[in-house]
């Protein structure tokens, strides 16, 4: 998934770990955020009042498409934290329950936003469907590594989605969620014994 980072931003081009990310996106059922960019590009002309109205409607539709893409990833994260919980202990069990609650809040907020835009929020798949695509989880570290990959994927998706959202309040909400996913990444990295803040620019690139 392209990220459209500024050329003067270090490490802004390309995303290592793309193969695994594509697998997650398939598992989540994500229709790429890039497709929404095409919608925006197609309705760039706003000559005259009727064209402006059309652009506004198309923009809302585009925003709903972008939000549905990240909503799919929130559903995936909810399924992953739910599936991994039995293997977690102590602080990580407590924190993962908090993270699960936060992912649910993200999903609920996205569903509401999509509905307000006049769109239809995607539905989550069944737990069985998600688990069929998960890697084998045998230990706490397996769960943490899997969760880390999913969180990084979500950050990359939000980073790609935010500039494509036309409504400023939606950009803000998505940014607030993105920063929360970045917090999760730092906690998971620490639990895995890795540097918790490996890069000055958090784009979902594998660390």
């Amino acid at each position: 998934m392209a990220n459209d980072l500024d050329p003067w931003l270090p490490g802004g081009h390309g995303h290592p770990g793309g193969h695994k990310r594509r697998d997650f996106l398939r598992l989540a059922g994500v229709t790429t955020v890039a497709s929404a960019a095409t919608i925006f590009a197609a309705c760039g002309s706003d000559d005259g009042e009727s064209a402006k109205t059309t652009t506004s409607e198309a923009a809302r539709e585009g925003d709903a498409t972008v939000l549905n893409a990240v909503l799919d990833l929130e559903y995936l994260a909810i399924a992953a934290y739910t599936a991994g919980a039995p293997l977690l202990k102590g602080d990580m069990l407590r924190l993962s329950r908090e993270f699960l609650g936060q992912e649910r809040q993200h999903a609920a907020a996205l569903e509401r936003a999509i509905t307000r835009l006049g769109g239809t929020a995607n539905k989550a798949k069944s737990e069985t469907e998600y688990r069929r695509g998960f890697p084998r989880l045998r230990t706490q570290d397996d769960v943490l590594r899997f969760a880390l990959d999913l969180e990084q994927t979500a950050i990359a998706a939000y980073a790609g989605a935010i500039p494509k959202l036309s409504a400023r309040e939606l950009r803000q909400s998505a940014t607030a969620i993105n920063a929360n996913e970045a917090e999760h990444v730092s906690v998971l990295l620490g639990a895995l014994g890795k540097p918790q803040v490996p890069a000055a620019f958090v784009t979902g690139t594998r660390s």
């Binding site: 935010i162 993105n178 917090e183 730092s186 620490g190 000055a200």
Partner: peptide, 27 residues
């Protein structure tokens, strides 16, 4: 800033910096 920046590239930079500050907060 993410509500006010007009240049999408600047917006992307702000989003990635804000996420880094959030990670500092974790530590």
């Amino acid at each position: 800033a993410t509500a006010r920046l007009k240049d999408p590239k600047l917006l992307s930079a702000a989003v990635s910096i804000m996420a880094n500050e959030a990670q500092h907060l974790v530590v």
